[in-house]
Simulated scan of single mutants.
Amino acid sequence: MYRFLLTPRWLAAAALTVAASVVMVFLGNWQLHRYQERSAINARIDAADSAEPVPLTSALVKPTEPGKVGPMPGKSKAWTKVTMTGRYDAAHEIQARGRTVDGNVGFEIVTPLVLTDGTAVLVDRGWVPPQTADATAPPVAAPPPTGQVTVVGQLHLTESRPSGISQRDGRIDTRRISLPHLADKIPYPLYGAYVLVTDPAAGFTAIPIDHEDSWQNGGYAIQWWLFAVMALFVYGWQARKEAHGDHPAKPRVDRVQAADDRLAAVPTARKPD
């Protein structure tokens, strides 16, 4: 009954169905991997809220060359809560423009904290709005405290896609906090991640740490797997339909009636008188 499956047409359809199903299974597995990866990030974010801070030097590798960024940590170090002691260098403060918090566009103020050993880490002291409704207007931000301070914050990995750097309003002005791009503007060996202050000073808004949308990837994984099953089901359903002759009935021609109609249409020959 199913010998027709060995015909070239059905063999090609089978190969195409299997190939499509395999691709969709791989896409589902990739989305599952993204779900697991994002879920791990969310777990680290939640764990960092209640964790005790660890020394910066235990989380990051110490940089050695002035004007250069040190080794960058892996993703597993992101959001680690750290503590460090040093003095702020307001002369090399950075303003990162076009930064959005709670739907409002403003600036993040990032100041180098010079540690006792001469190395430095960039500290994001928080978000401030522009002076006017114009989002490009320079911000007014309180200067960092003087003298030796202890800072507690969470590690943030360097941002990709670096933007241009200029001097504006007495600060280094940029759009992205890209450490390799900023390192030559800072005259100290620079750690390979920057720090978000967890409890910013008055006038600053803490930078929120958004959770990853892992459930979206989980939904996509299930969706791709269902598509793979559906492709195989449709092939089997079509094969069964073909094997059992479940085709729409063709109009039946009544051959006898058709013959009679043709005869009636032929003129009857007259007999000679």
Rank of each mutant, 00 (worst) to 15 (best):
R97P: 06
A249Q: 03
R99Y: 07
P138C: 08
L32D: 15
F227P: 01
F204W: 03
I94C: 05
P71G: 02
P71H: 05
P73G: 05
P55M: 06
G218A: 12
I165C: 09
L6T: 01
W79K: 03
Q257F: 00
G28P: 11
A91C: 02
D254Q: 09
A141K: 11
F233W: 14
V266K: 07
G118N: 07
A264I: 00
Q216R: 10
T83R: 12
L115F: 10
N217I: 13
L232T: 05
W224R: 08
P162F: 08
W237S: 12
Q131H: 06
A193N: 02
P144I: 05
P66M: 11
I177T: 06
K75C: 00
A201R: 14
K185H: 07
I207A: 01
R34V: 14
G192T: 02
T198H: 08
T132N: 14
R168G: 08
E212M: 04
V151W: 02
D124Q: 14
W30E: 10
A142L: 05
T146P: 04
V25Y: 08
Y35A: 15
R240E: 04
A201Y: 12
L27T: 15
T64A: 14
V140P: 06
L157R: 01
A47H: 06
P139L: 11
Y188L: 07
E159D: 04
D117E: 02
M84W: 03
V18N: 00
T111A: 04
A239M: 12
Y235S: 05
A193W: 02
V197S: 04
V256G: 11
V121E: 04
D117T: 06
A135D: 07
A249N: 09
R99M: 05
S39F: 09
Q167I: 06
V151L: 05
T205I: 08
P251F: 13
K241P: 05
K241C: 09
K68C: 08
T111G: 02
Y235Q: 05
V253Q: 10
